[in-house]
Computed example of a mutant assay.
Amino acid sequence: MSFKQLLYILLFFFTVSAKGSFILIPMDETTQQNHLKAYGITYWALDKQYKISWLLNYRGGSFLLPDAQEIRKECQIRGVSFEVLSDGESNSILDEISSPSQNMEAVVLERTPKIAVYTPKGKQPWDDAVTLVLTYAEIPFTPVYDEEVLSDGLLLYDWLHLHHEDFTGQYGKFFGAYKNAPWYIEQKKNAEALAAKLGYGKVSESKLA
């Protein structure tokens, strides 16, 4: 056997061994270096039509994805820890999860949910913890507010987050401390203008609608 033939054989076996069948995105505290970005990777992969298994109670609720070069690359770009598994390794994990003695379950995820966040127009992501997290994780969402709610716009979404809103129409929990602050006066003005636009004389009436 020539040196060239031997080199081809070695390259072949190296290529085969380097390619796994699955990618595990661990979610335990000791292994995953960026948990929020890991959720974003999962959403991104689902949006690209990859079928994903959510391994509930296995290493912090890890995700099992098919091995693909673009997934590996995206994990590296976003700083998300991942492990490449063979068929045997992934089957062993799934067997462990399916055991009656374990409080675990593998849930298949097949599509991305449409996410809406109830928040006034013009608010920055850091004004609400959920919008801050979703923005950092790179999970897309749509801000919705009273106009969308009253026009049945929520029917377009699968998941809605309500931030810590004061639905009495008293302009929120900061009224006592910040009622004279310019930004709060502007917020109050905008709330009253929106209520009037929707046909209500008071903000509290629009919230009760």
Rank of each mutant, 00 (worst) to 15 (best):
L10S: 09
H163W: 00
S2E: 01
T112F: 01
C75T: 06
S206A: 12
I71T: 12
S21L: 01
S17F: 05
W183P: 00
R72S: 14
L156S: 13
F12M: 10
I115E: 03
S86T: 15
A209S: 06
D67G: 04
F14R: 13
L198P: 11
A45W: 05
T42Y: 04
N180T: 15
H164P: 03
N91K: 08
D152Q: 08
K173I: 09
Q32R: 01
Y39R: 10
R59F: 08
P182D: 09
P26D: 08
L154N: 07
S206M: 15
D127T: 14
V108I: 14
Y118C: 12
Y157K: 11
Q102I: 00
F141S: 00
V16L: 14
E105C: 15
L150P: 01
F13E: 15
Q33W: 01
L94K: 11
E70M: 05
K188T: 14
V107W: 03
A116Q: 08
S81F: 05
D158R: 11
Y145K: 08
V16R: 12
D87H: 12
D127I: 12
A45D: 03
N103L: 03
Y118S: 08
Q49K: 14
N57E: 12
R72T: 15
L24Y: 09
P143Y: 03
S17A: 07
E148Y: 05
E74D: 11
F12I: 10
Q102L: 12
Q76N: 13
P125M: 10
I77N: 12
E138C: 07
A45T: 10
F3A: 10
S81Y: 06
G199N: 13
S17N: 04
L134I: 13
E147Y: 05
I185D: 00
Y200H: 09
T142Q: 13
L85N: 05
L208N: 11
N91Y: 02
Q5D: 08
T30I: 09
Y171A: 07
T119C: 11
Y184W: 12
E205R: 09
T135E: 09
W159K: 12
Q102T: 02
I115C: 03
Y58A: 02
G60H: 02
L10W: 04
L24S: 10
L85Y: 07
L36N: 08
L55C: 01
H163T: 14
E110R: 15
S204G: 06
H161C: 03
D28C: 02
Y8H: 05
W44N: 05
K114C: 00
F14G: 06
A177W: 00
F167Q: 06
L134A: 04
K123L: 09
K189R: 15
V84A: 05
A38L: 08
A38V: 00
K51E: 13
A129R: 13
A38E: 06
I185P: 00
L208M: 07
T135Y: 00
L46M: 10
Y178A: 13
